[in-house]
Design a protein around this nucleic acid. Sequence first.
DNA 1: CAACCAACATACAGTCTGCATGTAGATCGA
DNA 2: TCGATCTACATGCAGACTGTATGTTGGTTG
Lengths: 208, 208
Amino acid sequence: MQQDSTRRSNRDRTEATRAQLIAAARKLFTEKSYAETGTPEIVTAAGVTRGALYHHFADKQTLFAAVVEREAAAVAEEIERASPPSLDARDALIAGSDAYLAAMRAPGRTRLLLLDGPAVLGRAAMDAIDNRHGSRSLREGLIAAMRSNTMTRLPAEALTALLAAAFDRAALAIEAGGSAEDYRAVLIALIDGLSPTRLQALRPARTR
Amino acid sequence: MQQDSTRRSNRDRTEATRAQLIAAARKLFTEKSYAETGTPEIVTAAGVTRGALYHHFADKQTLFAAVVEREAAAVAEEIERASPPSLDARDALIAGSDAYLAAMRAPGRTRLLLLDGPAVLGRAAMDAIDNRHGSRSLREGLIAAMRSNTMTRLPAEALTALLAAAFDRAALAIEAGGSAEDYRAVLIALIDGLSPTRLQALRPARTR
DNA sequence: CAACCAACATACAGTCTGCATGTAGATCGA
DNA sequence: TCGATCTACATGCAGACTGTATGTTGGTTG
């Protein structure tokens, strides 16, 4: 029953080691790429050995998946925190897309979530991760808009996927130096284009 | 000046070896992934040695880039071959997108061009390749549509990129088992949504 | 025909991944 | 409480891969 500082329960040890590994891997995977980051480098940064890594994770890919999952959750949380609860469907969508683009400006996030993630884990696995976090709210927002007849009725799954793809590409393009205003304008035009009543003609003209 | 079968000019040798390497690499990169394909396997399939590979290509990435470039050109050619010359802007866009989705059904093409390509070469390099081939015609089609006032005027670069991203994701989703009709319907809705006169309301109702 | 150069082939160094084996500390049953 | 067992690691090893350096053969050129 000694409560020494050296005495830790197995659960605490596991939790701490896994957290250190994920944090170190996240840092390196965002600074460099998945392929350019080796497990020796990760464990050195985490202060453990490769034995610990392969005890807690089946392989390098599984550790990567844990990092991606955690990062996708962080993005979803930033979006949720930034989106006010009571807006009409269209403005909620635009607020959400702005929050998404802002969240994706964190260094290395686009490569981690939009380039390495799909390539290493596959599109299907990335879709599953996205559905657990970010795009879930996007899909629900779109369904809400269609239910309230502010949006043309379309297959929800496909619409969610294609709009999400456009958001993703916009994030990549903006990071590559593209005009954020241009991409934002096109995203809004795509969303407004789905309105059956062409609300945009009644709104004040968009700048530029 | 002997014209033996064993006697070949240096230019012929280079051309043949490079072609064999690219063909073998293409086959393996489409069957498996870039990461899962090693250079020993490639050179064995090509009937040469690794020395030849590293003589003609700086590294594995450079060979991969050559494969991607060639495959992107093949996709662009299939699209151009399938698209009749005289259609109005909107129908030309839809015909082009149908041809693109059809071309991307070739086994392994989506992973090569849409997953491994961006991850290995980077989005910027992939944009450069796309601009040399496929998306060039898409951009021109969009500009033509905007000029003829059948499409809302928007920043051409951004619009091209985001629509191309939607096409790409549709190709991935369809290969993963998604409903081709659903994704086609959403793509058309996105395109028609950009029409300033809301032509879609005047057209016969879309099925489903 | 001699010198040179391009197109390879071979060998090697360094690094990485995953696993197998060994060990110390934590947990559990008697 | 005390051995038995299991978890959480550390260490060492085998196989594979990438890129390069060096050697060799055949083509090219003056």
